[in-house]
Amino acid sequence: MEARVLVVVLAAVLSVSAQNDVGESRNNRLIERIKSQGYPAELHQVTTKDGYVLSLHRIPHGRDGSPGPRPVVFVMHGLMSASSHFLHLGPEYAIAYNLADAGYDVWMGNQRGNRYSREHVSLNPNDAKEKLEFFDYSWEDVGTIDLPAMIDYALAFTGQEKLHYIGHSQGGTVFLVLASMDPEYSNKKIASAHLMAGVGYMENFPFAPLRKLSDYGSILYALGTRMGIVEISFDALRRSESQTVEQDGLVDYCAGDEEYKAFCEMIGVPYLMADRLILPAIPEMGGSSLKQIAHFAQNIKDGSFRRWDYGPLTNLRVYRSLTPPSFDLSKVTVDVTMHYSLSDIVLHEIDVLAMAAAMPNTKARKIEKDTFRHEDYIFSKD
Protein backbone atom coordinates (compact mmCIF):
# COMPACT_ATOMS: atom_id res chain seq x y z
CA MET A 1 0.00 0.00 0.00
CA GLU A 2 2.78 2.45 0.93
CA ALA A 3 4.63 1.62 -2.29
CA ARG A 4 1.49 2.34 -4.32
CA VAL A 5 1.01 5.70 -2.59
CA LEU A 6 4.67 6.54 -3.21
CA VAL A 7 4.30 5.74 -6.91
CA VAL A 8 1.18 7.94 -7.21
CA VAL A 9 2.86 10.84 -5.41
CA LEU A 10 6.01 10.48 -7.51
CA ALA A 11 3.97 10.41 -10.73
CA ALA A 12 2.12 13.57 -9.70
CA VAL A 13 5.37 15.36 -8.87
CA LEU A 14 6.95 14.30 -12.16
CA SER A 15 3.87 15.44 -14.07
CA VAL A 16 3.93 18.91 -12.50
CA SER A 17 7.70 19.11 -12.91
CA ALA A 18 7.42 18.17 -16.58
CA GLN A 19 4.82 20.87 -17.15
CA ASN A 20 7.01 23.42 -15.34
CA ASP A 21 9.93 22.38 -17.55
CA VAL A 22 7.80 22.99 -20.66
CA GLY A 23 6.82 26.44 -19.41
CA GLU A 24 10.40 27.25 -18.49
CA SER A 25 11.72 26.17 -21.88
CA ARG A 26 9.09 28.25 -23.69
CA ASN A 27 10.00 31.31 -21.67
CA ASN A 28 13.72 30.76 -22.14
CA ARG A 29 13.32 30.34 -25.89
CA LEU A 30 11.46 33.62 -26.13
CA ILE A 31 14.15 35.40 -24.12
CA GLU A 32 16.84 33.95 -26.40
CA ARG A 33 14.84 35.00 -29.44
CA ILE A 34 14.77 38.61 -28.23
CA LYS A 35 18.50 38.53 -27.52
CA SER A 36 19.23 37.05 -30.95
CA GLN A 37 17.61 40.12 -32.48
CA GLY A 38 20.00 42.42 -30.66
CA TYR A 39 18.00 43.43 -27.58
CA PRO A 40 18.54 42.79 -23.89
CA ALA A 41 15.87 40.54 -22.41
CA GLU A 42 14.82 39.28 -18.99
CA LEU A 43 12.30 36.79 -17.66
CA HIS A 44 10.45 37.68 -14.45
CA GLN A 45 7.77 35.70 -12.67
CA VAL A 46 5.21 36.71 -10.09
CA THR A 47 2.70 34.58 -8.17
CA THR A 48 -0.82 35.94 -7.80
CA LYS A 49 -2.73 35.88 -4.54
CA ASP A 50 -4.69 32.85 -5.82
CA GLY A 51 -1.59 30.90 -6.85
CA TYR A 52 -1.07 31.43 -10.59
CA VAL A 53 2.54 31.86 -11.69
CA LEU A 54 2.68 34.63 -14.30
CA SER A 55 5.60 35.31 -16.63
CA LEU A 56 6.68 38.80 -17.64
CA HIS A 57 9.11 39.41 -20.48
CA ARG A 58 11.19 42.56 -20.20
CA ILE A 59 13.24 44.54 -22.72
CA PRO A 60 14.92 47.12 -20.47
CA HIS A 61 16.26 49.27 -23.31
CA GLY A 62 16.77 49.38 -27.06
CA ARG A 63 19.64 48.10 -29.17
CA ASP A 64 21.52 51.37 -28.93
CA GLY A 65 20.49 52.21 -25.39
CA SER A 66 22.33 51.77 -22.15
CA PRO A 67 21.20 50.42 -18.77
CA GLY A 68 19.58 52.92 -16.46
CA PRO A 69 16.20 54.25 -15.34
CA ARG A 70 13.75 55.10 -18.09
CA PRO A 71 9.94 55.35 -18.33
CA VAL A 72 8.20 52.00 -17.88
CA VAL A 73 5.58 50.82 -20.36
CA PHE A 74 3.50 47.72 -19.66
CA VAL A 75 2.06 45.95 -22.72
CA MET A 76 -0.84 43.49 -22.40
CA HIS A 77 -2.05 41.02 -25.02
CA GLY A 78 -5.55 40.10 -26.17
CA LEU A 79 -7.71 36.98 -26.11
CA MET A 80 -5.87 33.74 -27.02
CA SER A 81 -2.71 35.78 -27.41
CA ALA A 82 0.61 36.20 -25.59
CA SER A 83 3.50 38.59 -25.06
CA SER A 84 5.33 37.09 -28.04
CA HIS A 85 2.80 38.59 -30.44
CA PHE A 86 4.23 42.02 -29.68
CA LEU A 87 7.54 40.72 -31.09
CA HIS A 88 6.18 38.88 -34.13
CA LEU A 89 7.07 41.50 -36.76
CA GLY A 90 10.72 41.71 -35.71
CA PRO A 91 12.95 44.67 -34.78
CA GLU A 92 11.80 46.99 -37.55
CA TYR A 93 8.04 46.81 -37.02
CA ALA A 94 7.12 45.06 -33.75
CA ILE A 95 5.71 47.42 -31.14
CA ALA A 96 7.76 46.05 -28.23
CA TYR A 97 11.03 46.68 -30.08
CA ASN A 98 9.83 50.08 -31.30
CA LEU A 99 9.04 51.12 -27.73
CA ALA A 100 12.42 49.93 -26.45
CA ASP A 101 14.23 51.85 -29.19
CA ALA A 102 12.13 54.92 -28.36
CA GLY A 103 13.55 55.00 -24.85
CA TYR A 104 11.13 52.92 -22.78
CA ASP A 105 11.65 50.08 -20.33
CA VAL A 106 9.25 47.55 -21.86
CA TRP A 107 7.40 44.93 -19.80
CA MET A 108 5.11 42.45 -21.54
CA GLY A 109 2.55 40.62 -19.43
CA ASN A 110 0.99 37.18 -19.81
CA GLN A 111 -2.38 36.30 -18.34
CA ARG A 112 -2.99 33.21 -16.24
CA GLY A 113 -3.23 30.00 -18.21
CA ASN A 114 -1.63 31.13 -21.45
CA ARG A 115 1.43 29.33 -22.85
CA TYR A 116 3.90 31.39 -20.78
CA SER A 117 1.87 31.43 -17.55
CA ARG A 118 0.44 27.91 -17.47
CA GLU A 119 1.55 27.15 -13.93
CA HIS A 120 0.07 27.20 -10.44
CA VAL A 121 1.47 26.61 -6.99
CA SER A 122 -0.84 23.63 -6.40
CA LEU A 123 -3.05 22.93 -9.45
CA ASN A 124 -1.94 20.89 -12.47
CA PRO A 125 -3.61 22.19 -15.69
CA ASN A 126 -3.05 18.79 -17.31
CA ASP A 127 -4.90 16.83 -14.64
CA ALA A 128 -8.45 15.90 -15.68
CA LYS A 129 -9.90 17.05 -12.36
CA GLU A 130 -7.59 19.90 -11.35
CA LYS A 131 -7.85 21.62 -14.74
CA LEU A 132 -11.53 22.34 -14.02
CA GLU A 133 -10.44 24.57 -11.15
CA PHE A 134 -7.31 25.88 -12.86
CA PHE A 135 -9.23 27.22 -15.88
CA ASP A 136 -12.21 28.49 -13.90
CA TYR A 137 -11.42 32.14 -14.59
CA SER A 138 -12.62 34.93 -16.83
CA TRP A 139 -11.03 38.14 -18.08
CA GLU A 140 -12.44 39.80 -14.96
CA ASP A 141 -9.96 37.77 -12.91
CA VAL A 142 -7.17 38.83 -15.26
CA GLY A 143 -8.13 42.46 -14.71
CA THR A 144 -8.64 42.38 -10.95
CA ILE A 145 -5.88 39.93 -9.94
CA ASP A 146 -3.28 39.35 -12.69
CA LEU A 147 -2.84 42.96 -13.83
CA PRO A 148 -2.17 44.52 -10.41
CA ALA A 149 0.20 41.66 -9.51
CA MET A 150 2.27 42.24 -12.66
CA ILE A 151 2.10 46.04 -12.48
CA ASP A 152 3.14 46.07 -8.82
CA TYR A 153 6.06 43.78 -9.60
CA ALA A 154 7.30 45.87 -12.55
CA LEU A 155 7.10 49.09 -10.53
CA ALA A 156 8.80 47.60 -7.49
CA PHE A 157 11.60 46.10 -9.59
CA THR A 158 12.28 49.33 -11.48
CA GLY A 159 11.72 51.66 -8.53
CA GLN A 160 9.21 53.69 -10.53
CA GLU A 161 6.01 55.12 -9.09
CA LYS A 162 3.90 54.93 -12.27
CA LEU A 163 3.95 53.27 -15.67
CA HIS A 164 2.29 53.68 -19.06
CA TYR A 165 -0.14 50.98 -20.15
CA ILE A 166 -0.79 49.62 -23.64
CA GLY A 167 -3.46 46.97 -24.15
CA HIS A 168 -4.68 45.29 -27.33
CA SER A 169 -8.26 43.97 -27.56
CA GLN A 170 -8.84 42.02 -24.30
CA GLY A 171 -5.73 43.82 -23.02
CA GLY A 172 -7.94 46.92 -23.12
CA THR A 173 -10.86 45.06 -21.57
CA VAL A 174 -8.87 44.04 -18.50
CA PHE A 175 -7.60 47.60 -18.05
CA LEU A 176 -11.20 48.88 -18.07
CA VAL A 177 -12.13 46.22 -15.50
CA LEU A 178 -9.28 47.20 -13.17
CA ALA A 179 -9.65 50.96 -13.61
CA SER A 180 -13.42 50.89 -13.04
CA MET A 181 -13.37 48.51 -10.06
CA ASP A 182 -10.31 50.04 -8.37
CA PRO A 183 -9.89 53.60 -9.66
CA GLU A 184 -7.74 54.61 -6.69
CA TYR A 185 -5.18 51.94 -7.56
CA SER A 186 -5.20 52.82 -11.26
CA ASN A 187 -4.71 56.53 -10.67
CA LYS A 188 -1.84 55.80 -8.32
CA LYS A 189 0.00 53.35 -10.59
CA ILE A 190 -0.89 54.21 -14.24
CA ALA A 191 0.25 57.46 -15.83
CA SER A 192 -1.54 56.91 -19.14
CA ALA A 193 -3.28 54.14 -21.04
CA HIS A 194 -3.46 53.45 -24.77
CA LEU A 195 -6.15 50.92 -25.68
CA MET A 196 -5.72 49.48 -29.17
CA ALA A 197 -9.17 48.20 -30.13
CA GLY A 198 -9.94 47.88 -26.42
CA VAL A 199 -13.15 45.86 -26.13
CA GLY A 200 -15.74 47.05 -23.62
CA TYR A 201 -19.24 48.17 -24.62
CA MET A 202 -20.93 45.69 -26.97
CA GLU A 203 -24.31 47.21 -27.71
CA ASN A 204 -23.42 47.50 -31.40
CA PHE A 205 -21.20 44.44 -31.79
CA PRO A 206 -20.55 44.42 -35.57
CA PHE A 207 -19.78 40.82 -36.54
CA ALA A 208 -23.06 39.01 -37.20
CA PRO A 209 -21.84 35.37 -37.08
CA LEU A 210 -20.34 35.81 -33.58
CA ARG A 211 -23.34 37.83 -32.46
CA LYS A 212 -25.58 34.93 -33.45
CA LEU A 213 -23.34 32.39 -31.71
CA SER A 214 -23.40 34.45 -28.52
CA ASP A 215 -27.06 33.52 -28.02
CA TYR A 216 -25.85 30.02 -27.16
CA GLY A 217 -22.76 31.05 -25.18
CA SER A 218 -23.97 29.93 -21.76
CA ILE A 219 -25.27 26.63 -23.13
CA LEU A 220 -21.99 25.91 -24.92
CA TYR A 221 -20.01 26.82 -21.81
CA ALA A 222 -22.06 24.39 -19.71
CA LEU A 223 -21.65 21.71 -22.38
CA GLY A 224 -17.91 22.29 -22.59
CA THR A 225 -17.30 22.08 -18.86
CA ARG A 226 -19.40 18.92 -18.70
CA MET A 227 -17.18 17.42 -21.42
CA GLY A 228 -14.04 18.56 -19.59
CA ILE A 229 -13.23 21.20 -22.22
CA VAL A 230 -12.15 24.23 -20.22
CA GLU A 231 -9.01 25.33 -22.09
CA ILE A 232 -8.77 26.69 -25.63
CA SER A 233 -5.27 25.89 -26.88
CA PHE A 234 -3.47 24.90 -30.07
CA ASP A 235 -0.40 23.14 -28.71
CA ALA A 236 -1.82 19.68 -29.35
CA LEU A 237 -1.34 20.19 -33.09
CA ARG A 238 2.42 20.57 -32.84
CA ARG A 239 4.66 17.55 -33.01
CA SER A 240 7.41 19.62 -31.47
CA GLU A 241 7.89 23.12 -30.15
CA SER A 242 10.28 24.01 -32.98
CA GLN A 243 7.97 23.09 -35.85
CA THR A 244 6.00 25.56 -37.90
CA VAL A 245 2.26 25.17 -37.42
CA GLU A 246 0.36 24.11 -40.51
CA GLN A 247 -2.61 26.39 -41.08
CA ASP A 248 -5.02 23.74 -42.36
CA GLY A 249 -6.86 22.24 -39.46
CA LEU A 250 -5.39 24.52 -36.78
CA VAL A 251 -8.75 25.33 -35.19
CA ASP A 252 -9.75 21.66 -35.22
CA TYR A 253 -7.46 21.16 -32.25
CA CYS A 254 -8.55 24.13 -30.16
CA ALA A 255 -9.85 21.82 -27.42
CA GLY A 256 -6.75 19.62 -27.47
CA ASP A 257 -8.04 16.88 -29.78
CA GLU A 258 -9.56 16.73 -33.26
CA GLU A 259 -12.34 14.67 -31.68
CA TYR A 260 -13.75 17.97 -30.42
CA LYS A 261 -13.54 19.72 -33.80
CA ALA A 262 -17.30 20.32 -33.85
CA PHE A 263 -17.16 21.99 -30.46
CA CYS A 264 -14.38 24.31 -31.65
CA GLU A 265 -16.63 25.36 -34.50
CA MET A 266 -19.68 25.77 -32.25
CA ILE A 267 -17.94 28.24 -29.96
CA GLY A 268 -16.75 30.31 -32.90
CA VAL A 269 -13.00 29.66 -32.85
CA PRO A 270 -12.76 29.71 -36.69
CA TYR A 271 -14.18 33.25 -36.63
CA LEU A 272 -11.94 34.35 -33.78
CA MET A 273 -8.88 32.95 -35.54
CA ALA A 274 -9.71 34.11 -39.08
CA ASP A 275 -7.26 37.01 -39.26
CA ARG A 276 -4.46 35.14 -37.52
CA LEU A 277 -4.62 32.22 -39.95
CA ILE A 278 -3.16 34.37 -42.74
CA LEU A 279 0.18 34.43 -40.94
CA PRO A 280 2.95 32.22 -42.36
CA ALA A 281 3.38 30.60 -38.96
CA ILE A 282 1.80 30.85 -35.53
CA PRO A 283 4.36 29.32 -33.17
CA GLU A 284 3.09 30.99 -30.03
CA MET A 285 -0.69 31.18 -29.80
CA GLY A 286 -1.38 32.06 -26.22
CA GLY A 287 -4.52 30.10 -25.39
CA SER A 288 -7.33 30.99 -23.00
CA SER A 289 -10.00 29.55 -20.78
CA LEU A 290 -13.37 28.64 -22.26
CA LYS A 291 -14.89 30.88 -19.58
CA GLN A 292 -13.19 33.95 -21.08
CA ILE A 293 -14.92 33.34 -24.41
CA ALA A 294 -18.21 32.61 -22.64
CA HIS A 295 -17.97 35.90 -20.72
CA PHE A 296 -17.54 37.83 -23.96
CA ALA A 297 -20.48 35.88 -25.40
CA GLN A 298 -22.65 36.90 -22.44
CA ASN A 299 -21.81 40.56 -23.02
CA ILE A 300 -22.37 40.35 -26.79
CA LYS A 301 -25.76 38.67 -26.25
CA ASP A 302 -26.87 41.28 -23.73
CA GLY A 303 -25.27 44.24 -25.52
CA SER A 304 -23.50 45.09 -22.28
CA PHE A 305 -20.19 45.35 -20.46
CA ARG A 306 -20.72 43.64 -17.13
CA ARG A 307 -19.50 40.99 -14.75
CA TRP A 308 -19.88 37.23 -15.10
CA ASP A 309 -23.50 36.07 -15.17
CA TYR A 310 -23.98 33.09 -12.84
CA GLY A 311 -27.74 32.99 -13.31
CA PRO A 312 -30.39 34.84 -11.24
CA LEU A 313 -30.14 32.89 -7.97
CA THR A 314 -26.34 32.85 -7.74
CA ASN A 315 -26.19 36.44 -8.96
CA LEU A 316 -28.43 37.39 -6.05
CA ARG A 317 -26.06 35.72 -3.61
CA VAL A 318 -22.85 37.05 -5.19
CA TYR A 319 -23.94 40.51 -6.37
CA ARG A 320 -27.17 41.04 -4.39
CA SER A 321 -28.84 41.54 -7.73
CA LEU A 322 -30.62 39.21 -10.16
CA THR A 323 -28.37 40.47 -12.96
CA PRO A 324 -24.61 41.07 -12.86
CA PRO A 325 -23.56 44.70 -12.35
CA SER A 326 -22.07 46.66 -15.24
CA PHE A 327 -18.54 48.04 -15.11
CA ASP A 328 -18.92 51.74 -14.32
CA LEU A 329 -16.59 53.48 -16.78
CA SER A 330 -17.33 56.88 -15.27
CA LYS A 331 -14.93 55.85 -12.51
CA VAL A 332 -12.04 55.49 -14.99
CA THR A 333 -10.15 58.76 -14.56
CA VAL A 334 -6.74 57.73 -15.94
CA ASP A 335 -5.56 59.60 -19.05
CA VAL A 336 -6.82 57.18 -21.73
CA THR A 337 -6.61 57.14 -25.52
CA MET A 338 -8.86 54.67 -27.32
CA HIS A 339 -7.50 53.78 -30.77
CA TYR A 340 -10.09 52.29 -33.11
CA SER A 341 -10.67 51.50 -36.77
CA LEU A 342 -13.70 51.18 -39.03
CA SER A 343 -12.92 47.65 -40.30
CA ASP A 344 -12.76 46.09 -36.85
CA ILE A 345 -15.13 43.11 -36.72
CA VAL A 346 -15.42 43.03 -32.90
CA LEU A 347 -15.57 46.71 -31.96
CA HIS A 348 -17.96 49.29 -33.36
CA GLU A 349 -17.17 53.00 -33.60
CA ILE A 350 -20.41 53.91 -31.81
CA ASP A 351 -19.40 51.82 -28.80
CA VAL A 352 -15.89 53.29 -28.75
CA LEU A 353 -17.23 56.84 -28.77
CA ALA A 354 -19.73 55.96 -26.04
CA MET A 355 -16.95 54.57 -23.85
CA ALA A 356 -14.79 57.62 -24.47
CA ALA A 357 -17.70 59.88 -23.52
CA ALA A 358 -18.27 57.92 -20.29
CA MET A 359 -14.67 58.26 -19.09
CA PRO A 360 -13.72 61.78 -17.89
CA ASN A 361 -10.13 61.91 -19.27
CA THR A 362 -10.48 59.87 -22.43
CA LYS A 363 -10.11 60.68 -26.10
CA ALA A 364 -10.86 58.51 -29.13
CA ARG A 365 -8.46 58.30 -32.06
CA LYS A 366 -9.67 56.82 -35.34
CA ILE A 367 -7.04 55.07 -37.45
CA GLU A 368 -6.78 56.92 -40.77
CA LYS A 369 -6.72 53.72 -42.83
CA ASP A 370 -10.35 52.57 -43.14
CA THR A 371 -9.35 48.96 -43.95
CA PHE A 372 -7.33 48.59 -40.73
CA ARG A 373 -8.53 45.46 -38.89
CA HIS A 374 -8.68 44.28 -35.30
CA GLU A 375 -5.43 42.29 -35.58
CA ASP A 376 -3.52 44.87 -37.60
CA TYR A 377 -2.43 46.70 -34.45
CA ILE A 378 -0.15 43.70 -33.80
CA PHE A 379 0.40 41.94 -37.12
CA SER A 380 0.43 44.66 -39.80
CA LYS A 381 3.63 46.40 -40.85
CA ASP A 382 1.75 49.64 -41.49
Results as ranks from 00 to 15, higher is better:
Gln160Asp: 14
Gly256Arg: 03
Pro270Gln: 01
Gly90Asn: 11
Ala82Lys: 05
Ser289Asp: 06
Trp139Met: 09
Met355Ser: 15
Tyr52Phe: 06
Met273Arg: 00
His85Gly: 09
Glu42Gln: 13
Ser169Phe: 05
Val142Asp: 03
Leu147Cys: 08
Asn187Ser: 13
Tyr221Gln: 10
Val106Ala: 03
Gln45Ser: 07
Pro360Gly: 07
Met76Thr: 11
Met359Pro: 08
Lys131Gln: 15
Pro324Ala: 05
Val269Ala: 02
Phe372Tyr: 10
Gly200Ile: 04
Ala281Val: 06
Glu241Ile: 14
Pro69Gly: 06
Ser330Gly: 15
Met338Ala: 06
Val334Gly: 00
Ser84His: 10
Ser326Thr: 10
Asp302Pro: 02
Asn315Thr: 03
Gly143His: 07
Ala197Thr: 04
Asn299Trp: 04
Ser242Val: 08
Ile267Lys: 01
Leu176Ile: 09
Asp376Gln: 00
Met273Pro: 03
Leu79Glu: 13
Gln170Val: 03
Cys264Met: 06
Arg58Ile: 00
Thr337Met: 11
Ala3Arg: 13
Lys261Ala: 14
His77Asp: 07
Ile350Asn: 04
Phe207Arg: 11
His57Pro: 01
Asp252Gln: 15
Pro91Phe: 04
Met202Glu: 07
Ala262Pro: 03
Asp101Ser: 01
Gly249Tyr: 02
Leu237Tyr: 06
Lys188Asn: 10
Gly109Ala: 14
Ile378His: 00
Glu241Tyr: 14
Asn126Glu: 10
Glu2Pro: 03
Asp248Asn: 00
Glu258Gln: 15
Arg63Leu: 01
Lys49His: 08
Thr48Val: 06
Tyr310Ile: 12
Gly113Asp: 08
Arg276Ala: 08
Phe379Ser: 02
Leu155Asp: 00
Tyr137Val: 01
Lys291Gln: 12
Pro324Leu: 06
Met202Phe: 07
Glu259Trp: 15
Phe157Trp: 01
Pro148Leu: 00
Pro67Ile: 06
Thr48Ile: 05
Phe135Gly: 08
